[in-house]
Simulated scan of single mutants.
Amino acid sequence: MDPMFSLLITIALIVIGLSILLSVVPVMLWISALASGVRIGIITLIAMRLRRVIPSRIVNPMIKATKAGLGLTINQLESHFLAGGNVDRVVNALIAAQRADIPLGFERAAAIDLAGRDVLTAVQMSVNPKVIETPIVAAVAKDGIEVKVRARVTVRANIDRLVGGAGEETIIARVGEGIVTTVGSSDTHKGVLENPDMISRTVLGKGLDAGTAFEILSIDVADVDVGKNIGAHLQTEQAEADKRIAQAKAEERRAMAVAQEQEMKARVVEMRAKVVEAESQVPQAMAEALRDGKLGVMDYMNLKNIEADTQMRGSIGKSGDAKNDKA
């Protein structure tokens, strides 16, 4: 075999071996760690590979922590990584807290990170408070006038209550409730417009940040507008409802009157039927009376004369009424 060809094969095998070795053993990362003062062994880096831990995700934050003088260990960072935490964000938060003189230990920072909160943002918010703007809150004063208020809430993160503390939505809801209560207890809407700062004082004095992950520094009213006359609108609706109730009751009374009239008509028809039936029995009764001798012939004739006289008087009365109507 050609010596030159053998040399090329040997060099290729050496290059391949070094590539495999460098892919398994992060030599450059180990050198960077040693140059930064982080004491970590090659075996430890290989063990990270076997535990499916990306060495750079541990070593690079460890270098930053060492340079900042935090005094962390590789095991702390690796255990947090295996638990699903963001090691780099936790280390950055610890460095920021140290620079801002905020008491924050690794265990608490890791717990905040694992709880799903951004610990770095929380530390930054502790240094630089955040302004939360509430949506427009509509409230009604005692005089029935609607008042629309929009407020700005300045909050600072409370590191001790980040785990288990309520978020921004709770702050917004509580401030909105305080605005509604303050405006609702005002006698007139003019008082709210003249002194909007009373909303800030009243709401701020309620301790709305209890149980939340924030500390409320100030509540400032950004805008106050007058809305609808809710009292007049409600009175109009009440009057319309009363009118409909009165109409329904009147219709009920009319229906009852119509029913009573129909009932009276039915009774009159029934009585007339009984009268006709009784009148139909009069001739038969008179005949029986004549046969039995209870009624004489002269009595019968006198009865007929009385009937004829009554009919004549009725006819004369009707003719007289007709003449008077024509006159």
Score class of each variant (00 low, 15 high):
residue 327 A to Y: 06
residue 111 A to C: 03
residue 1 M to K: 14
residue 157 A to W: 01
residue 252 E to D: 06
residue 183 V to F: 02
residue 12 A to N: 10
residue 219 I to Y: 00
residue 277 E to V: 02
residue 189 H to R: 09
residue 70 L to N: 05
residue 185 S to F: 01
residue 54 I to T: 13
residue 155 V to H: 02
residue 313 R to L: 11
residue 324 N to H: 11
residue 191 G to L: 07
residue 231 G to L: 05
residue 313 R to E: 04
residue 276 V to T: 11
residue 113 D to P: 04
residue 280 S to T: 04
residue 64 K to L: 14
residue 230 I to D: 02
residue 160 D to M: 04
residue 96 A to F: 05
residue 244 R to G: 04
residue 146 E to Q: 13
residue 202 T to H: 10
residue 305 N to E: 14
residue 301 M to V: 15
residue 98 Q to N: 10
residue 21 L to Y: 13
residue 287 A to L: 14
residue 298 M to V: 10
residue 3 P to L: 06
residue 49 R to W: 05
residue 196 P to G: 07
residue 216 I to Y: 00
residue 132 I to E: 09
residue 212 T to G: 00
residue 303 L to P: 02
residue 217 L to S: 00
residue 62 M to N: 03
residue 179 I to K: 01
residue 214 F to W: 14
residue 134 T to W: 03
residue 29 L to I: 05
residue 227 G to Y: 03
residue 52 R to S: 12
residue 166 A to C: 06
residue 68 A to T: 05
residue 253 R to D: 07
residue 125 M to R: 14
residue 25 V to E: 09
residue 202 T to Y: 09
residue 1 M to W: 10
residue 22 L to Y: 12
residue 166 A to V: 07
residue 8 L to P: 05
residue 173 A to N: 09
residue 4 M to L: 12
residue 298 M to L: 12
residue 201 R to D: 03
residue 167 G to A: 13
residue 28 M to E: 11
residue 90 V to P: 06
residue 267 R to K: 15
residue 35 A to F: 15
residue 305 N to M: 15
residue 314 G to H: 02
residue 117 R to M: 07
residue 290 L to F: 02
residue 92 N to M: 07
residue 64 K to M: 14
residue 133 E to W: 05
residue 157 A to E: 01
residue 51 R to S: 14
residue 123 V to R: 02
residue 133 E to N: 13
residue 148 K to I: 09
residue 101 D to Q: 12
residue 41 G to Q: 08
residue 99 R to T: 12
residue 31 I to K: 12
residue 230 I to K: 06
residue 222 A to E: 08
residue 299 D to K: 01
residue 61 P to D: 08
residue 161 R to Y: 04
residue 262 Q to V: 09
